[in-house]
Simulated scan of single mutants.
Amino acid sequence: MHTSLDCLPCFLTQALKGARLAAPAREDIHQRVVQEWAAEFANLDLTLSPPALAGRLYALLADSVGDVDPFRGYKEQSNMQALRLLPRLDALVRQQADPLRAALGVSIIGNYMDAGVQLVVDVEDALSREDIGAVDDDTYVMLRQRLTPGASVMILGDNAGEIAFDTLLVRRLAEAGCVVTYVVRGVPIINDATMEDARFVGMTDLCEVVSSGVDTPGTVLERCAPGFVDRMASVDVVLSKGQGNFEALRDNFADAFFAFKAKCPKVAGLCGVPQGTSMLHYESS
């Protein structure tokens, strides 16, 4: 997915948010970061995906505030909130006629926990009012047919907090006999999940967890660790979580299922759905 002009104001909002979290009392740093990002706009290749460009811009933030994780507190709070909700959600999922579909729906609603977009949603409220089974029927049937016993499934994770909800999905896939690998980012970037988050929420106790190696808020193929893309291409099912992974991989990787919330007007318009829709989308070559 190419970057649009509509993405540029969002980048500036992310710059200011990150600078304020990293250096709360330093208005001079906030100003410098925003101005540096704005100046960089003249040099951006808008044919690249938003996550690819965001990774480049966040490097400017690191230059100004040092090697810190400004969203660490947000991530910890998100993980704790999701873990608190898990027992009730696990019971809810198990009560459904199709627990796998319900677990997938819960994990998609968990994608609201995203510090990189301007849409702010109370995930607990969303879980109480949204239909957890509301995913595209035809795409779900296609996905379900491929989740046979012994099938290798790679889940490309997205955000902290959301990764805790994803444990419900991993449990249901394991019950279906699938062999699951869960993927996290290589380094902290916005509130995306890393290996530290995977350990904290217990994902490492459920399945193999690996790092894609990326330093971008999405699985940008050219930024992946050596051998990772080949491994991704070799599995039976790739289930890509989150809008950032959709933006990075759409048009760039064949044969993937995308599960995410359409959180920005640009992506919602591209998908032809209202903003906030739970998306289960399939892309093939």
Results as ranks from 00 to 15, higher is better:
192 D>T: 04
94 R>N: 01
98 D>G: 15
158 D>T: 04
58 Y>R: 15
35 Q>E: 11
138 D>V: 13
245 N>L: 04
18 G>P: 07
128 S>T: 15
27 E>R: 11
224 C>M: 06
128 S>W: 15
201 V>S: 05
167 T>G: 00
132 I>W: 04
122 D>N: 13
148 T>L: 03
138 D>R: 15
206 L>K: 13
280 L>T: 03
246 F>Q: 10
59 A>D: 14
100 L>G: 06
89 L>C: 11
27 E>C: 08
121 V>N: 07
28 D>K: 09
109 I>K: 07
52 A>P: 00
238 V>Q: 02
105 G>V: 01
187 V>A: 01
220 V>I: 12
63 D>G: 10
6 D>Q: 13
26 R>S: 11
91 A>D: 14
235 V>Q: 11
231 R>Y: 10
35 Q>A: 14
264 C>R: 13
159 N>W: 02
41 F>Y: 10
185 R>E: 00
53 L>M: 08
112 Y>T: 08
151 A>M: 09
242 G>S: 05
242 G>N: 02
72 R>I: 00
143 L>T: 02
214 V>K: 01
133 G>M: 02
235 V>R: 06
55 G>E: 02
274 P>S: 12
191 N>Q: 03
241 K>E: 09
86 L>I: 15
196 E>M: 14
159 N>P: 08
212 S>E: 10
267 V>E: 00
173 L>F: 08
264 C>T: 09
190 I>M: 10
126 A>G: 13
161 G>F: 13
123 V>W: 03
215 D>E: 09
91 A>G: 14
211 S>Y: 04
185 R>V: 03
21 L>H: 11
171 R>A: 13
132 I>M: 05
64 S>H: 14
188 P>H: 00
60 L>K: 10
137 D>Y: 05
186 G>W: 02
90 D>V: 00
225 A>F: 07
265 P>E: 00
37 W>K: 09
56 R>H: 14
53 L>A: 12
5 L>Q: 09
65 V>I: 12
176 A>Y: 12
26 R>K: 07
226 P>T: 07
75 K>S: 08
251 D>Q: 12
54 A>M: 15
107 S>V: 08
216 T>S: 12
66 G>S: 07
274 P>K: 09
183 V>T: 04
142 M>P: 00
15 A>K: 01
163 I>Q: 05
77 Q>V: 11
93 V>G: 06
106 V>Y: 07
54 A>Y: 12
208 E>S: 11
253 F>E: 03
96 Q>S: 03
95 Q>V: 11
191 N>C: 07
173 L>C: 11
220 V>A: 13
64 S>F: 09
140 Y>L: 13
202 G>V: 14
176 A>S: 14
17 K>A: 15
195 M>I: 15
120 V>P: 00
225 A>Y: 04
180 V>Y: 01
184 V>C: 07
154 M>D: 05
248 A>G: 05
81 Q>Y: 08
109 I>H: 06
214 V>H: 01
146 R>V: 04
95 Q>C: 14
176 A>Q: 14
194 T>H: 01
